[in-house]
């Protein structure tokens, strides 16, 4: 057990490759909501989105030793969700919408971006732009994993509640945990 929320994606992958389930659950915790939003906006069917993501995360676990997972976790996940969104079978309506839209795109002779890396970068930007629309706590998890660590005041500002409330919340959680674990020591850095 360790402070997984503080780990970078790279560190989580390192742990994941060793079969660390908590690292896997932290990756899920970090990315599920954003992948869900992205898929849902292109495939507005809750059950379908859930199935896609379930299969996606299963495959992350099963292919944790693949080299492609080595470097860029978001790129891996976002590409995976795009490919699954495009590969939708059940919804004929959505599929025919895709085809109509793609056909229009081709017919209008847009210029496709030839550089795969640039396309990947654009995909990452497009998906992460939606972080702002996540429920605040999920957004925080995501942003904390990206940016460093927030103080109570910063968390409070994010959540539009008072710093005191954050402090109380943290302390309450500590109390609950103390009871649950029967631990006789505590660190209170506040």
């Amino acid at each position: 057990m360790s402070s997984y929320e503080f780990f970078s994606d790279t560190e989580l992958i390192h742990l994941l490759k060793k079969g660390d389930v908590t690292a896997f659950s932290e990756i899920h915790n970090r990315y599920y909501a954003i992948l869900y939003r992205h898929a849902y906006n292109r495939l507005p069917d809750r059950e379908e989105v859930k199935d896609i993501l379930q299969e996606l995360f299963s495959s992350v676990w099963n292919s944790k030793n693949d080299l492609s997972l080595n470097t860029n976790l978001p790129a891996y996940l976002y590409t995976a969700v795009r490919n699954r969104v495009l590969n939708v079978h059940k919804h004929h309506k959505i599929k025919s919408d895709y085809i109509t839209s793609l056909q229009k795109f081709i017919d209008r002779e847009h210029v496709p971006e030839p550089d795969e890396n640039i396309r990947l970068k654009q995909l990452i930007e497009m998906i992460e732009k939606e972080v702002a629309k996540l429920p605040s706590q999920m957004r925080l998890i995501f942003e904390m994993s990206r940016n460093a660590h927030l103080s109570h005041q910063e968390i409070a500002d994010e959540l539009h509640i008072s710093a005191l409330t954050v402090k109380k919340q943290v302390n309450n959680s500590l109390k609950i945990l103390r009871v649950k674990l029967g631990a006789n020591f505590f660190m209170i850095f506040f």
């Binding site: 057990m1 929320e5 503080f6």
Partner: peptide, 14 residues
């Protein structure tokens, strides 16, 4: 609650 969770993970580590 994220902050609490992060903190508590550290406590658990301890």
């Amino acid at each position: 609650f994220t902050a609490a969770a992060a903190l508590i993970a550290v406590v658990l580590a301890g």
